[in-house]
Design a binder for these strands. Structure first.
Lengths: 182, 182
DNA sequence: CCGAAACCGTACAATTCCGGTCCGGTTCCT
DNA sequence: AGGAACCGGACCGGAATTGTACGGTTTCGG
């Protein structure tokens, strides 16, 4: 089913949201946005947002500014960030079998393990595919989906006043795929 | 990290092995091969092989023949089977977020879930990539890897006499990917 | 100069999911 | 009639991911 981790999903959301806030200067104060602010805007719990942001910063996808009035800023425009980079930042290198490269320790009996290197072309193809899609295309898809209901429901300002919408994203996610064809 | 399940990996191995055995009429007896035979040839535990074979048969990738002297047979040649089909047979439909299609039950608050449909282009691209690679290309890669050591180490005959090589494939596999970059 | 805000790094507990196994039943050839 | 093999389900254990918490450090603002 090719699951990518939920954190990666969050990372994409956070980066898109970060782009909007720093661009409109609504949530941040002149180019940066804080983790709590992003958490409230996206509905993702604060510690999780912080964790994602940290991993993103470690990979250089966002730059951080410490201290009071600190925050995060996109290192590049969304159109210059491939989702492959985000996935790599959160989940590590993109591969499907873990039997890639050296894999020192696993499958030491090469003569009996019939899968060594077998998935390499697949991994390369997937990697190429993921590298060709940038974040802004997903942002565009987002806009299109939001159209029917609310013209500006994504809350570009600091916070929607009531905003009890939280943690609904993490309820159940992986269930629907299994019941469909198993 | 894009993990695909270990079962899918096994499925590929089993299908390749099944192709060899039914083609050379070595392990089976004229076109079919049994689950225990495949288990011994591949080193995968028998119940697991049976489970994989069952899923494969349910999807029409292999055909089963019940009763004594029964067994499994490839429904199509390896070159006509895309790995996307194998993945779908074992892991369900290919998607990365489970928030695809209707997803009745999950993410009922569309207004707050910013990821609805966002991964659709990615899923489509991955699906197309996986549909363009067939099993025989992986079989070819297998041959190339086996060359250096043994000319015919894959044991095309029913069973290598001693053959204590078992269950080494399932010992540790998912570990190496995590230590690589996390 | 001092306090507050925000990031930083690590460690930890809970949950969910996957991998692997087993059972009784049915079908079919010998 | 008997045995061999598939069939369908459920079950349990282990592992990975998820989500959270805490103490420390850096920097700005008053």
């Amino acid at each position: 089913m090719l699951r990518l981790s939920k954190l990666t999903d969050y990372a994409v959301v956070v980066m898109v949201q970060l782009s909007r806030q720093t661009r409109t200067a609504a949530g941040g104060e002149g180019g940066v946005s804080t983790a709590p602010c992003l958490a409230q805007a996206t509905g993702i719990p604060e510690p999780t947002v912080a964790k994602v942001l940290k991993a993103l910063a470690a990979s250089g996808l966002v730059s951080s500014q410490r201290g009071a009035r600190g925050g995060y800023r996109l290192a590049r425009a969304l159109s210059a960030v491939a989702i492959a980079e985000v996935i790599t930042a959160i989940d590590g290198p993109i591969s499907m079998t873990a039997c890639v490269d050296g894999a020192t320790g696993g499958c030491e009996a090469q003569t009996c393990c019939p899968i060594r290197g077998r998935w390499d072309p697949v991994n390369d193809a997937i990697r190429a595919t993921l590298s060709s899609i940038t974040l802004d295309s997903m942002d565009k898809a987002f806009d299109r989906l939001q159209m029917p209901h609310a013209p500006s429901a994504e809350a570009p300002a600091g916070a929607p006043p009531g905003a009890p919408v939280h943690a609904v994203v993490n309820s159940q996610r992986t269930k629907s795929a299994s019941l469909a064809a198993e």
